[in-house]
Design a protein around this nucleic acid. Structure first.
Length: 276
DNA sequence: ACCTCCCTGGCC
DNA sequence: GGCCAGGGAGGT
């Protein structure tokens, strides 16, 4: 599912297709996909006719800055993915937004569950939509362990819940949060404020390597294949996962048995033997 | 800081 | 035929 590594892999694939191209037409097949926008029609109106500058990303948000100070923002939600096509390619089911380029290529957003969305923002709107809502990017600007200590001090919520809170750091979802906690050797249900300095260092140190590994494999495509790279290939980090989805299987570090518990209404997979 | 909702394919 | 998956927003 699309978390930071999947969004970043998507950004890297889309870059060569989008950058420098001009948007000539936008087709919104499901109006629900345009959200967090005053009027849904604003999206097409605002992006059409503009040239795309180099792509960016913040947490799970894919950012396409356009000439003229408009930013096309895409969030893939739970089940969204981007697909690069020619106009002749048949459309997959759940193709909800189509962006046609002057190059003849088109980028399609496919999202069965429609938790994803697109929007087009002025600089002021972008600040409200992103800066005021999400914290530093977990890959590009990870806070120091000392800063993390400040953020987590006194918090009784489980550390897993705070890793998923995009205001603390942005980009982590359920899969990579579990992988990070496993690598750091920390139980997901530990009260966040109870982590000592050594544990916080281990936690901080686990974040980038896990995300980098996921990215190097093109991300994590699960059996449902909801997430795929823009060329249709699957990311295969699922074969390297150490915790997520491995209930009942042997821990790849200590040989213990991975368990599944529910934290904040989300599945958590972890090893009771090597996560303390 | 917690709960509910959105949505649909896939599974029991 | 019902339930589950879950990111993020909204409400209490």
């Amino acid at each position: 599912m699309p978390e930071l590594p999947e969004v970043e892999a998507t950004r890297r694939h889309l870059g060569p297709v989008l950058e420098g191209a001009t948007i000539i037409e936008v087709i919104v097949r499901r109006l629900r996909m345009v959200r967090r926008q005053e009027r849904p029609g604003d999206f097409g109106d605002r992006v059409t006719g503009r040239r795309i500058r180099p792509l960016g990303r913040r947490g799970k948000y894919l950012l396409a800055p356009l000439e003229g100070d408009i930013t096309w923002v895409t969030h893939l939600g739970m089940s969204g993915r981007m697909s690069v096509n020619t106009r002749e390619d048949p459309e997959l089911p759940h193709t909800n937004v189509v962006v046609r380029l002057d190059s003849g290529a088109e980028v399609r957003m496919v999202d069965p569950r429609t938790f994803g969305f697109v929007a087009a923002y002025t600089p002021e709107e972008l600040v409200v939509a992103l800066n005021d809502r999400i914290g530093p990017d977990a890959y590009e600007s990870l806070p120091s362990s000392r800063r993390l200590a400040d953020l987590l001090a006194g918090r009784v919520a489980p550390i897993k819940a705070l890793l998923l809170d995009q205001r603390v750091v942005s980009g982590l979802g359920n899969i990579y949060a579990d992988e990070i906690l496993h690598r750091a050797g920390i139980r997901p249900d530990r009260p966040a404020g109870s982590l000592d300095a050594t544990e916080l260092k281990a936690l901080r140190a686990a974040i980038r390597p896990v995300l980098a590994a996921g990215l190097s494999h093109g991300g994590t495509s699960l059996d449902d294949l909801a997430y795929l790279l823009p060329d249709g290939r699957a990311g295969d980090y699922v074969t390297r996962l150490r915790a997520y989805g491995r209930e009942g299987e042997a821990c790849r570090r200590c040989g213990g048995t991975i368990v599944r518990t529910v934290i904040r209404a989300r599945s958590s997979f972890w090893c009771p033997r090597c996560q303390a």
